[in-house]
Design a protein around this nucleic acid. Structure first.
Lengths: 203, 203
DNA sequence: GTCTATACCCTGATAGAC
DNA sequence: GTCTATCAGGGTATAGAC
């Protein structure tokens, strides 16, 4: 039909569709088995391709990982803007909403939990990504935490730098326990009680 | 010298020494590269053995992992008893001392951080070990937390079950950030500020 | 853009001598 | 208890046809 009129655009769209499928499959296997444990053959088959077919779009497993991480960063960035997880006002409830959202996407939580730990190794292809992610993430939160402290939403007797590290630690740590025992650990409830601790003492 | 008199005992001691060397090397490589990333050949070479030499003592990589984990549990159990990390009185300062100790053994912290995340996968040989470790660990802490709440050391407006999950989460989460940036993250200081949050409000 | 065929390396594990 | 030799299998990546 339109093939004769716009053949190149159709090609480009097919490529994009293939790439999207591959990223989706790779996300699934990197989450379930980690980077090392995931096999290119499994990812390829799940994306309805052979291995060389996959490697035509992503020249190596390493490249594929970087694209998966970049893609997640992009999507999460949009989500944070859209859902207002980084609101200056009502900082704690925006963090709470983030945890609630995470509790609905265990696959993605497992992707980050698994890869973040695997990437502690300096030689790991994801090492710089995660080190910078934590570094920048804390820096951004420190800003917001200072505002929340000034507005009286959060207690001021603990440095904002430490609070930022605590927030990341609490989320990461609860995610591990939740992934092991989703029925036993109510991540949302525990985090909610954690935010209680951060509010100023009544006096 | 004594070989003629006690040949069998000498043999047994040699075996024990070999096994200890292997466990030590395996601990190092499992920590640095995870279970999947660690190579039997590297472990064997570090223990001054060939691969079949190693496999004479531990019939498979899987067995070796289980022994490494069991050995760490044994040693840590002794350490906890000896250093009183599970004191009923002064619960928070015993937890603080545990964090201080951990900050002196980054290799062992990396072993547990890396393997705990890798073992989230149900098929991983370490899965049951870590699931039970968290489960039992929290159960034990809940007991102590209840006592600490009764004695007034810890605030009582949050369920002990949630506090137990929080303590594990905070330690695990801080360890990740600390392993990425040991110079930037002062795990001991941040955890100390976290324990502040757990103390009752002054009224 | 996707395939078949294959190169090439690495890995855990076994057989059997010493 | 440790070795040499070796296997069977799986892993990523490449060459080249269609």
């Amino acid at each position: 039909m339109t093939d004769a009129q716009t053949p190149r655009r159709t090609q480009a769209e097919r490529t994009r569709a293939s790439k999207a499928k591959i990223i989706q499959a790779a996300t699934q296997f990197f989450a379930q088995q980690g980077y090392r444990g995931a096999k290119m053959s499994d990812i390829a088959r799940t994306a309805n391709l052979t291995e060389p077919g996959l490697l035509h779009h992503f020249p190596s497993k390493n490249h594929l990982l970087m694209e998966v991480l970049a893609e997640r960063d992009r999507i999460d960035g949009e989500l944070i803007d859209f859902k207002g997880y980084s609101e200056k006002n009502d900082f704690l409830s925006s963090q709470q909403k983030l945890v609630e959202h995470n509790s609905t996407v265990p696959g993605l939580v497992q992707l980050f939990t698994t890869l973040a730990a695997e990437s502690i190794q300096k030689e790991h292809p994801g090492h710089n990504f995660f080190r910078e992610r934590y570094h920048k993430g804390r820096a951004d939160e420190i800003e917001m935490l200072r505002h929340a402290q000034e507005s009286g939403e959060i207690r001021s007797d603990i440095p904002a730098e430490d609070l930022a590290a605590m927030l990341y630690a609490m989320m990461d740590g609860l995610q591990i326990q939740w992934l092991y025992e989703p029925e036993t650990i109510d991540m949302v409830k525990v985090f909610s009680n954690f935010t209680k601790l951060l509010k100023p003492e009544k006096d």
